[in-house]
């Protein structure tokens, strides 16, 4: 089967890129999404802070996503849910988990990013239950409706960690502290103010977790200061990595260490006709910037297809 444009991922980047390409005149578009609904990670980001620059108003994640989902549906852009792209070749043949092979005229990579797990930090100690990345805990609470913990230590002060400190507090958990190895938080100042300060949650800078305790469930952590803190849950918010496993398969060049995609000004990767947008390119602070970049990627792909 042939497709002018295949967009991989239906998060903010994929949706905006597909819409942008459509508005530039491309009609034969397919968005492929591995989850069972459109919108990507925004669906679990129920907090406000999205869209201030794009729409001039403050929206929650699901509301921001809904605007693009409505547009995709209105334009009749085709999409597939519960479908994962298994392979992309250099000549732009896309293999789906259903076995279907698509010959794409152009591809926009919009797979987003993933969280760094515990292993990447190499913290010693036991391997009990109760250790979650902040995003996994967020999904458990906001989508599935389960409490991941009661007494929580958050390692790393990335934005998702800060947001989850407030979220868990609102739902009745005791967030004991956020510890950050650096001398400055990686999160936005507004999130420190409204997620930590509002609830008197201490932020310990220049501090990290050096050991995890507990045989079955987490029972506590040892901090780099030597202090022991009892808790039943550890949330990790220690950075995001572009999810470029697929990109590598078709030969897209990545920056070592960061896993960022090396691309041209118009967002075309080293592979002819393969473009990138959003957090798969590099991790963005704000969804508004993801959208902006995705619009550009959609436009570039359209220009490429018309040439």
């Amino acid at each position: 089967m042939k497709k002018d444009l295949v967009v991989i991922g239906a998060g903010p980047a994929g949706l905006a890129a597909a819409i942008s390409a459509y508005e530039e005149g491309i009609r034969d578009i397919l968005i492929v999404e591995r989850d069972n609904l459109l919108g990507g990670i925004l669906n679990q980001c129920i907090h406000p802070g999205f869209g201030l620059f794009t729409f001039g108003e403050e929206l929650t994640g699901p509301e921001y996503a809904a605007r693009y989902i409505a547009k995709v549906k209105e334009l009749g852009i085709e999409y597939m849910l519960d479908t994962m792209v298994m392979d992309i070749t250099r000549d732009k043949v896309v293999t789906l988990s259903s076995g279907l092979k698509l010959e794409a005229g152009a591809i926009i990579l919009a797979m987003g990013c993933r969280e760094r797990p515990r292993g990447a930090l190499n913290i010693s100690g036991t391997r009990p239950s109760g250790i979650f990345t902040a995003g996994t805990a967020q999904r458990l609470m906001n989508i599935e409706g389960y409490m991941p913990g009661k007494e929580v230590v958050i390692l790393g002060s990335g934005d998702i960690g800060l947001i989850m400190a407030r979220r868990m507090t609102l739902e009745g958990a005791k967030v004991k502290m956020v510890v950050e190895i650096k001398e400055k938080s990686g999160g936005l100042a507004r999130n420190i103010a409204q997620c930590l300060d509002d609830f008197n949650i201490p932020l310990l800078l220049n501090t990290t977790v050096t050991k995890i305790h507990g045989k079955d469930r987490v029972t506590g952590v040892t901090l780099s200061t030597g202090e022991y803190v009892s808790c039943d849950t550890i949330l990790l918010s220690v950075g995001l990595i572009p999810e470029n496993e697929l990109s590598k398969k078709c030969g897209v060049r990545l920056e070592e260490g960061s896993n960022n995609i090396i691309c041209s000004e118009d967002l075309m990767t080293d592979v002819d006709g393969v473009f990138c947008s959003g957090n798969v390119h590099h991790v963005h602070d704000l969804v508004d910037n993801v959208t902006k970049e995705a619009i550009k990627a959609g436009k570039s792909a359209a220009i490429y297809l018309r040439r």
Binding site: I46, P48, T60, M141, N142, I143, G145, L170
Partner: peptide, 21 residues
């Protein structure tokens, strides 16, 4: 003052929760 965001239980839906603010 602050915006408050959370979730509300829903019955008979595709998921168990609706996000609210």
């Amino acid at each position: 003052s602050r915006l408050v965001t959370s979730t509300v239980k829903v019955i008979g839906g595709r998921g168990p929760l609706v996000s609210v603010r």
